[in-house]
Design a protein around this nucleic acid. Sequence first.
DNA 1: CTGATAACGTGATGCCGGTCACACGCAGTT
DNA 2: AACTGCGTGTGACCGGCATCACGTTATCAG
Lengths: 240, 240
Amino acid sequence: MISPYGLDIIESCLTCKMRVDRIFCDLPTSALQSFETIKYATAYPKGAVLFVEGQSPRGIFVLCKGRVKLSICATDGKTLILKIAEPGEVLGLSATVSGKPYELTAETVDPCQVNFVKREDFLRFLKEHSDACFKVAEQLSEKYNNACHEVRSLGLSHSAGEKLAKLLLEWSSKNGEAAKQEPRLKLALTHEEIAQMIGTSRETVTRLFADMKKRQIVQAKGSTLVIRNKAALKLMATNN
Amino acid sequence: MISPYGLDIIESCLTCKMRVDRIFCDLPTSALQSFETIKYATAYPKGAVLFVEGQSPRGIFVLCKGRVKLSICATDGKTLILKIAEPGEVLGLSATVSGKPYELTAETVDPCQVNFVKREDFLRFLKEHSDACFKVAEQLSEKYNNACHEVRSLGLSHSAGEKLAKLLLEWSSKNGEAAKQEPRLKLALTHEEIAQMIGTSRETVTRLFADMKKRQIVQAKGSTLVIRNKAALKLMATNN
DNA sequence: CTGATAACGTGATGCCGGTCACACGCAGTT
DNA sequence: AACTGCGTGTGACCGGCATCACGTTATCAG
């Protein structure tokens, strides 16, 4: 087994541990075996670009290890980060299904393992395995749902503080810290990147953090952030 | 044949003229016949609400006649109109597939004919007709694509003028007026509604129109708008 | 025709937040 | 240690646009 970029490659989807709760989960073994024959297990270093918005779709990328930044960017270079994809996600799915250009750019932020499937192979696979096709429809619904939330937050939440508060709450609910009184979360992103996630400027993010610290809502411990006043944060997220 | 709300009801999907280029187009006749048995042809007056965001999904609504406003709204009443759906579109699809709540609200703006299909019936239909399932995946991709464009316009286009220009160009490209030197388009929406489409205030829309008229970019002829300087409008749409 | 109601037009005001500018701390490098 | 790059903190400025307020047209029922 090769291990480029310090990765331990997951060889087979049949034995992959995360498959129970992910995309190609409860598919019949025959479908999974068929999938094995068309996928290319590949590894990427940090900072690699899987695809760029506007490219015509080459196929899907199933993320197995590492994180991938999904973003769109304007002609003037302004960038909006839509999400940081985690293992289990299928990238480039909608473009591959519809044949239209990729609608966003995917770039690794860690060394990643990815299973790539060529468009023609994938479409044939879908035609032959109707249960997989239904799974894909579910996945796409999920993605659409997320996009709607993004639209809501961009279009209706006016203040930047509101969006930042929402983002922090969302993050804290991922690491199983949701229930805790004072959830902690690692800030793996720079202020610049956080700004790009909520569509504001770096300076504004810095100022918002300073303000929240002053008001005892959060507290920094090195690169981890402690939410000291969850109620106040929720208020920020809904209110002004 | 009944004709409520002044509608001539389309009785069967098998003979519907628009089916060639729409969702349940080149499906085998067997699938279409099966669809016939589970759909409920219904009529709605203007202003009827098909579903509200947050409701758990009852099923899909295939729009046959009339237009439907799709919107999301904030707790404070602020509303964002995502699009005005036209005949041929399938509404509530993603929620019905995923089982999650409807992510937006659908309200008729004209008297409408709608084919409703209950969720259980529809899911069964998809399991039994894999080609329909693939169609659904394509539809969802399309919707996801649109949502991405919406995100781009909300997140990256900063000025309100830019968004209005984009909207006008988009509208003019629908009525086959795209190629013309001076495209015309009917403004079927109030300034208030236009404002809700681009996430700004009514007054700003009024002011922008006034400005564009002063600069000879557009011209109002009653309720139709003539684009006199398409180049300038495109500049507005990309630039500042 | 006429009153009511909705839509439109337009000024005044204020604030959020984008942008510019610069200083500071903190790696890693040579 | 000095240099370099990158991320962060902070002040100053100011422009776009939301908001309020009010006047002026449309639209339509009766």
